[in-house]
Design a binder for these strands. Structure first.
Lengths: 209, 209
DNA sequence: GTCTATAAATGGATAGAC
DNA sequence: GTCTATCCATTTATAGAC
């Protein structure tokens, strides 16, 4: 093996990930190029070698979200396509999986936090937020319900309405307990607890009478 | 009547409302004191006469939210205490009232937009957001359900779970369609439509069998 | 690919006149 | 209560050496 320096390769990706960390915590505007440099041990000009300007870092991150969405889409399919058993436990498992494996996924979570801020003023960010936080998970939940209806487990036949009802519970608990200055284990535990409670409740109302 | 100049009294409140408008659109950090001055036709020093610093404007606005919460609390009581009839239309009316009269209330909406950004990095803003967007509406919904249970309209006896299930639908549709760079009439119409659809669906599952 | 140095602009904040 | 003028820190961005 050759003597190449494997420690501290400050490539584009490295810079983007540090930027994402900071953008997620403080927002794009509040973070200066110098702030991004510090943890990397770099100077500003090193950043400007990789990116045209500060905006370029954000644009690059937004492109990264699009890739992430595609990746997550295939991961979802692998995770949920087999779980076509129906019980309140199974429904809770799907919901907790959506929380733990997606919304709280280290990169997805930071993207959501960053976009939560940016989407209010920027069309570009709003578009990405919509896809990441609403379209993809809703489409996924819809598929789960379509399957359940197909197999005769469920009475009603509007999978997109059911998806919205169920995902609303997950999204609500997530927003209420997991978005904020710090994400603690207690917050996550409380979120799961609330999702489980509401999930079981709504499941009992919905199941084949 | 005396010849006092009634036009353009640029008092503290005037400055705060202009600041709120801008903070809601771009976030606290992204708005400069000069930005606030422009629409008011003032100079920076005029602002610093009324406020100790830029942060002082935000602090003042946060205090204003607390007053608003108290005011809204009493308005809610007046609006919902009589509506103790139970039907899917009545439930939808309560939900649409929560959207139209509260979440989309001109001032409340701007406060929510501003706090959506600030609450991610600031404990103070997070606290206020929690009260304004979660605690107050949930408490209110809970009271409506407690009444309905009291009068024997509803089977289940966990009003706080029901409140969360119902309010989650409202909050979800609001976040999905009404938060972003511009709020159009189409967005609002779509939000109402989605709330109505999900509300009726969940109501039919819930009502006395 | 990263550094030093520096230009140019922006933004928070104050002093003192009116 | 608002204005002019000004100060100073921060920040974006670039030029040119290594």
């Amino acid at each position: 093996m050759s003597e190449e320096k494997n420690i501290k390769i400050n490539n584009k990706e490295n810079i983007e990930m540090t930027a994402l960390e900071l953008f997620a915590k403080h927002g794009f505007q509040a973070v200066s190029v110098r702030d991004i440099c510090k943890p990397l041990g770099l100077r500003e000009s090193a950043i400007y070698y990789h990116f045209a300007n500060k905006q370029g870092i954000l644009d690059s991150l937004l492109l990264r979200v699009d890739q992430l969405i595609l990746q997550m889409k295939t991961e979802f399919e692998a995770a949920f396509s087999e779980a076509a058993e129906v019980s309140d436990e199974a429904m809770c498992a799907v919901a907790i999986g959506m929380l733990q494996g997606y919304l709280l996924h280290p990169v997805v979570y930071k993207m959501i936090a960053m976009l939560t801020i940016e989407r209010i003023s920027t069309y570009n960010a709003q578009d990405t937020y919509q896809k990441l936080v609403f379209e993809l998970p809703l489409k996924q939940m819809e598929m789960v319900f379509a399957q359940m209806i197909d197999k005769g487990f469920i009475v009603r036949n509007a999978p997109e309405v059911l998806a919205q009802e169920y995902y609303a519970i997950i999204y609500f608990a997530f927003q209420k307990n997991c978005i904020g200055p710090e994400l603690t284990d207690e917050n996550i535990a409380l979120t799961k607890q609330e999702i489980n409670k509401n999930m079981k409740d709504i499941y009992n109302k919905m199941k084949q009478r």
